[in-house]
Simulated scan of single mutants.
Amino acid sequence: MEDQTPQEQASPEVQKRIRASFDRQGLMSHLGARISHIALGRVHIVLPSRPEVTQQHGYFHAGATSAIADTAGGYAAFTLFPENTDVLTVEYKVNLLAPAVGDHLEAVGTVLKSGRTLTVCRLEVFGVQDGRQSLVANGQQTLIRIDGREQ
């Protein structure tokens, strides 16, 4: 999903830190999700369609949809945090707007306000089928910066 506002590319160091952290996430690996875009304050995560991430009607499961939304927002915030810090979700809310269908889902986390301690992100999830995108979920998230953690 392309945003209308240009995003500054994250430095190679920030991208490396984000990817290294993401690679340690067992759930994202289990789901088959991957990071597709890292900019300062914005991260995209793609989840390919497969039976293991669907519910009984064949739609992407709300848990998988919400998990990639939460993770995209967390890493969007993390792009703005200094080294030797970490990020944890304090709360998030996701509205499921339509059945999540497509070749894959793309979650987009965008920082709305980055503070010294708390950061707020917009969460969007798009179903993508044959290159056409449809918004299937949106939400908001609050994250906390944890200082002094090893990466």
Score class of each variant (00 low, 15 high):
Val120Tyr: 07
Arg42Gly: 05
Val53Leu: 07
Gly131Phe: 00
Ala33Tyr: 00
Glu124Asn: 12
Val90Leu: 06
Arg145His: 09
Met1Cys: 01
Gln55Pro: 14
Gly127Lys: 05
Gln151Leu: 11
Glu2Leu: 13
Gln140Tyr: 07
Arg34His: 10
Val101Glu: 15
Asp130Trp: 13
Glu2Cys: 12
Thr79Ile: 13
Lys16Asp: 10
Arg145Met: 12
Asp3Val: 09
Gln4Asn: 11
Asn95Tyr: 08
Arg19Gln: 15
Ile45Cys: 14
Tyr75Trp: 06
Gln55Asp: 08
Leu80Gly: 14
Arg17Asn: 10
Gln140Phe: 09
His104Ile: 01
Ala33Ile: 03
Glu124Pro: 03
Pro51Gly: 13
Thr110Ala: 05
Val101Gly: 12
Leu31Asp: 05
Ser66Val: 01
Gln4Ser: 14
Thr71Tyr: 01
Ala62Leu: 12
Ala77Leu: 09
Ser49Phe: 05
Gln7Val: 08
Ala69Arg: 13
Arg122Thr: 07
Leu31Phe: 02
Val43Pro: 01
Gln15Val: 02
Gln133Met: 10
Gly73Lys: 04
Thr79Val: 14
Val94Tyr: 04
Gly26Phe: 07
Ala107Arg: 10
Gly41Ala: 04
Gln15Tyr: 06
Gln9Ala: 12
Gly73Glu: 01
Thr142Leu: 12
Val101Arg: 14
Cys121Ala: 04
Glu8Ile: 05
Ala20Trp: 12
Thr110His: 07
Arg149Gly: 09
Glu8Thr: 07
Leu47Asn: 08
Ile146Val: 01
Leu118Met: 15
Asp86Thr: 09
Val46Arg: 12
Lys93Tyr: 04
Gly115Glu: 11
Asn84Ser: 11
Gln4Arg: 11
Thr85Gly: 15
Tyr92Asn: 04
Glu52Thr: 06
Leu123Trp: 03
Leu135Met: 02
Gly127Met: 04
Ala137His: 00
Arg122Met: 08
Ser36Trp: 00
Val128Pro: 02
Gln7Met: 06
Ala20Leu: 09
Gly63Lys: 03
Arg42Ile: 00
Gly102Leu: 03
Ile38His: 02
Pro82Arg: 13
Lys113His: 12
Thr117Cys: 00
Val136Phe: 03
Val14Arg: 05
Tyr92Cys: 04
Val14Ala: 05
Ile146Ala: 03
Arg116Phe: 04
Gln140Cys: 10
Tyr59Ile: 00
Ala72Lys: 10
Asp70His: 12
Val90Tyr: 00
Ala10Val: 05
Arg132Ala: 07
Gln133Val: 15
Gln7Gly: 09
Leu96Ser: 01
Thr5Gly: 09
Pro82Lys: 15
Asp103Cys: 14
Glu13Ala: 10
Leu47Cys: 10
His104Gly: 05
Phe81Ala: 15
Gly32Phe: 03
Leu31Glu: 05
Leu118Phe: 14
Thr119Gly: 06
Ala107Trp: 11
